[in-house]
Simulated assay, not measured.
Amino acid sequence: MSKDLPIRPDTPCVAVCSTTFDEVCRGCGRTVVEVAHWVAMTPEQKEVVWQRILAQGYPRRNG
């Protein structure tokens, strides 16, 4: 695997999916594009997303 990346769940998804008012999921904090491309992203790309969403207080289990 790549350089020492933190161990994370396979996805930030918490099954509270909503992009009603913009293109950011209210459950996990990812953009629509990030959700759509998640499975094809490299571990480094995923880590960049993880760092951003965690800093913003995501994932949120109660939306």
Score class of each variant (00 low, 15 high):
residue 58 Y to S: 02
residue 57 G to M: 13
residue 11 T to K: 09
residue 36 A to I: 01
residue 8 R to C: 10
residue 54 L to K: 09
residue 57 G to H: 14
residue 16 V to D: 01
residue 21 F to T: 03
residue 22 D to K: 02
residue 50 W to L: 02
residue 55 A to R: 15
residue 4 D to K: 14
residue 4 D to N: 14
residue 15 A to M: 05
residue 61 R to Q: 04
residue 4 D to V: 14
residue 24 V to Q: 02
residue 63 G to N: 00
residue 11 T to H: 11
residue 19 T to Q: 13
residue 53 I to P: 13
residue 5 L to T: 06
residue 15 A to R: 04
residue 11 T to P: 01
residue 13 C to S: 08
residue 52 R to P: 04
residue 34 E to D: 08
residue 27 G to R: 03
residue 31 T to H: 06
residue 45 Q to C: 01
residue 18 S to C: 07
residue 47 E to N: 14
residue 39 V to N: 02
residue 36 A to L: 07
residue 24 V to P: 00
residue 12 P to K: 01
residue 37 H to C: 06
residue 3 K to H: 11
residue 22 D to W: 01
residue 27 G to F: 02
residue 51 Q to W: 09
residue 56 Q to R: 12
residue 36 A to N: 01
residue 5 L to M: 14
residue 45 Q to H: 08
residue 8 R to A: 09
residue 43 P to Q: 05
residue 19 T to H: 02
residue 8 R to M: 03
residue 48 V to R: 07
residue 17 C to Q: 07
residue 2 S to Q: 06
residue 50 W to P: 00
residue 61 R to K: 06
residue 60 R to P: 03
residue 29 G to N: 02
residue 23 E to N: 05
residue 53 I to S: 09
residue 15 A to V: 01
residue 49 V to K: 13
residue 28 C to T: 00
residue 3 K to G: 15
residue 44 E to H: 04
residue 30 R to Y: 08
residue 42 T to Y: 09
residue 57 G to A: 13
residue 15 A to W: 02
residue 11 T to V: 03
residue 52 R to D: 00
residue 60 R to L: 08
residue 56 Q to Y: 07
residue 17 C to K: 10
residue 57 G to T: 15
residue 7 I to Y: 08
residue 60 R to N: 04
residue 62 N to C: 07
residue 35 V to H: 06
residue 16 V to G: 00
residue 44 E to I: 02
residue 45 Q to W: 03
residue 49 V to A: 15
residue 60 R to A: 00
residue 43 P to S: 10
residue 45 Q to A: 13
residue 42 T to P: 07
residue 35 V to Y: 12
residue 52 R to Q: 08
residue 37 H to T: 09
residue 55 A to W: 14
residue 44 E to P: 01
residue 56 Q to M: 07
residue 52 R to M: 00
residue 33 V to N: 03
residue 11 T to D: 10
residue 39 V to F: 06
residue 13 C to D: 00
residue 55 A to S: 15
residue 45 Q to K: 06
residue 53 I to V: 14
residue 19 T to N: 07
residue 31 T to Y: 03
residue 18 S to M: 00
residue 49 V to W: 13
residue 5 L to A: 12
residue 19 T to P: 03
residue 37 H to Y: 05
residue 12 P to N: 05
residue 25 C to N: 07
residue 10 D to N: 09
residue 3 K to T: 14
residue 10 D to E: 14
residue 6 P to C: 07
residue 31 T to C: 06
residue 9 P to I: 10
residue 38 W to S: 01
residue 57 G to E: 12
residue 41 M to N: 11
residue 37 H to K: 11
residue 3 K to L: 15
residue 26 R to T: 15
residue 26 R to C: 05
residue 2 S to R: 10
residue 30 R to G: 08
residue 49 V to C: 15
residue 19 T to G: 10
residue 5 L to K: 15
residue 6 P to M: 13
residue 46 K to H: 05
residue 37 H to A: 11
residue 23 E to Q: 11
residue 2 S to E: 14
residue 59 P to A: 04
residue 55 A to N: 15
residue 23 E to K: 05
residue 57 G to P: 13
residue 6 P to Q: 08
residue 15 A to Q: 07
residue 46 K to I: 10
residue 10 D to V: 08
residue 28 C to L: 10
residue 58 Y to C: 01
residue 3 K to N: 15
residue 42 T to A: 09
residue 54 L to P: 01
residue 5 L to N: 12
residue 4 D to A: 12
residue 3 K to A: 15
residue 2 S to V: 10
residue 44 E to V: 03
